[in-house]
Amino acid sequence: MEIYGYRVPAAAALLVWVVIWEIVGQFDLLLMFPPFSEVLASLPEVIGTASFAEAARITVVSYLSGLALAIVVGVGLGLLMGMVKRADQILNMWVNIFLSAPLSALVPVIMILFGMGSPTVVATVFMFAVWIIALDTRAGVLHASPSLIDMSRSFGASRGQRMKLILLSALPEILAGIRLGVVRGVKGVVIGQLLVSIIGVGALFSLYSQNFLMAHFWALILILFAFALSLAELINRLEARVEYYAGNRS
């Protein structure tokens, strides 16, 4: 199946849902669900508006900054936890708590700290993405072959050179963490903007729902899905390129 050039995997199952959606929509049973065809029809309209362009820009900018921050901090935190036992003992519990905590409940707190603008959204994306990246990086470091590290020591590698070796050894796990972080980050950016609701797609969502523009509302959701899936797919491709050695470590 193609949605504006994007190939959706597991297309068959999706198609069934689309058909059910279309039928339910045609019967006009629920106000929430306009027919799928109508949703598709409003896609170009949503994308065409100036407010969408502005919302998309803000969303992408805050998403990418939050994600970049999460990757830098997450990988750093994971390296620290994987390499320094003491740090791991202190941090491991907290990282795990944050990983499984209902983060949406924390967004209001973030809002108090960072105000009603983009910083809150950036912080939300960060909070959603960082922990899984840290934990996967930690796992990758702990998984690094001890004899490889002995090897670099035996040839007199400096601290920095050993770090580089560990980082490269952990790369498959780090990428797996980033891929999960990318998807969680999309959740973060949507939830953050919905709660702030005066900027980005959050503003659009409230605009559409307040004016009962359900077709537009769902079109926006479709776009967000496509965005998240394409990003995850991109990371997937990257992972496939380094995968050959993930399975080849001893």
């Binding site: 072959s145 004899s147 002995d150 090897m151 020591r153 035996s154 040839f155 007199g156 380094v242 050959y244």
Partner: peptide, 19 residues
């Protein structure tokens, strides 16, 4: 006191960098 350039090690599990 530690590893030195006069000694080189060959590892049982090869210890090659897979990348």
């Amino acid at each position: 006191k530690g590893p030195g350039p006069e000694r080189a090690f060959v590892f049982q599990d090869f210890a090659l960098m897979p990348w």
